[in-house]
């Protein structure tokens, strides 16, 4: 296996890890505030559709991105209404949101475009184009550093850089600001936060909305950057892999980055089986790679490799007075 293959493999790892990373950080905000969210998948799907549809209609990918974020936040607020205001079961609400998105996207796509549940292919300004970083072309011929810079670091869409930037920002917000401290506290011991005179409901809604925004960007990336248009069920379980990555990362931002990069690498390897055969000498079935993130998460959850302890008040609706 030559150097260029490694670069190509890592390049597609980054591409595939980006939506996982954004969705994983989305889930991180929500679950750190004590709201379980298995509806990441549905929110991504809704955002993927609305950003592609609006981008196709207006010709501007930025308006599309806003529409995608709007759709995702709307579903987040529905989740908030069910699980915060009406103190319903958060898991059931998440399941409902996944189905709602799966059904509505196809229904609306068929109504708007009549192309069998897809949007028209996006072109030009309706897509996020790759950005060439400064000096990428000039440096391309420098050995080792050149290809790494020109092929791996440069040449992604703006959302990829945004996603990677979200990691330190998330860390800073959660661990270095007052809002972050309160948000984490509300996921561990909401009664204490309430006693301190801070609104539990307000904080949880804030967390759920942030989750919606990040899921929205993740979905927009799928349909306007990774691919050129929406197709039915295009999130393809990525929301659940992000959930797996979140547990794998034990609800920590930097670890979320590592976990999603690892799962992104599995995804990249699925299309480059020749590489695996060349490296370890045996043929690995594609199904094995596809199932690996889930198997690893189950092992982590079982506590065989370190213990994954979720936020203590996760999944519990907060009742002010009993």
């Amino acid at each position: 296996m030559d150097f260029l293959t490694v670069i190509q493999l890592l390049d597609s790892t980054v591409r595939l890890a980006t939506p996982l990373l954004l969705a994983c950080l989305a889930g991180l905000f929500s679950e750190r505030a004590g709201i379980f969210d298995i509806g990441l998948e549905g929110k991504m799907l809704a955002a993927a559709f609305f950003s592609a549809a609006v981008a196709a209609l207006t010709g501007s990918v930025w308006i599309g991105l806003l529409a995608g974020i709007g759709a995702s936040v709307a579903l987040s607020l529905l989740h908030g209404l069910a699980s915060i205001t009406f103190r319903g079961n958060q898991l059931i609400s998440g399941v409902a949101i996944n189905f709602l998105a799966a059904g509505l996207t196809v229904l609306i796509a068929q109504d708007w475009f009549s192309q069998g549940g897809r949007t028209p292919s996006l072109m030009g300004g309706a897509r996020f184009e790759p950005i060439t970083l400064p000096f990428a072309d000039a440096l391309a011929d420098v050995p080792v550093v050149g290809p790494v810079y020109a092929e791996l670091i440069s040449g992604h869409s703006v959302l990829v850089y945004l996603a990677f930037l979200t990691v330190p920002v998330t860390w800073w917000v959660l661990f270095r600001t007052r809002f972050g401290l309160r948000l984490r506290a509300v996921g561990e011991n909401p009664a204490a936060v309430d006693t301190a005179g801070v609104s539990v409901i307000g904080l949880r809604y804030a967390a759920v909305v942030i989750c919606g925004v990040l899921c929205g960007i993740a979905g927009a990336y799928l349909s306007t950057a990774l691919q050129a248009g929406f197709v039915k069920d295009m999130s393809a379980g990525r929301g659940f892999i992000a959930l797996a990555a979140l547990i794998f990362a034990k609800w920590r931002p930097w670890h979320a980055l590592y976990a999603t990069l690892l799962f992104g690498l599995f995804g990249a390897l699925e299309t480059r089986q020749d590489v695996i055969t060349a490296v370890i000498g045996i043929k690995v079935q594609g199904q094995v790679l596809g199932a690996l993130p889930y198997v690893m998460t189950v092992i982590i959850l079982a506590g065989f490799v370190g213990k994954a302890i979720p936020p203590r008040a996760g999944g519990e609706p907060y009742v002010k007075e009993r």
Partner: peptide, 21 residues
């Protein structure tokens, strides 16, 4: 499209399950 049923199913789960209260 057939997906209408998925929407109905989602709404039933939402109202009988999550929005029960």
């Amino acid at each position: 499209p057939r997906e209408l049923i998925v929407v109905i199913q989602a709404l039933i789960i939402l109202f009988t399950g999550a929005l029960d209260n």
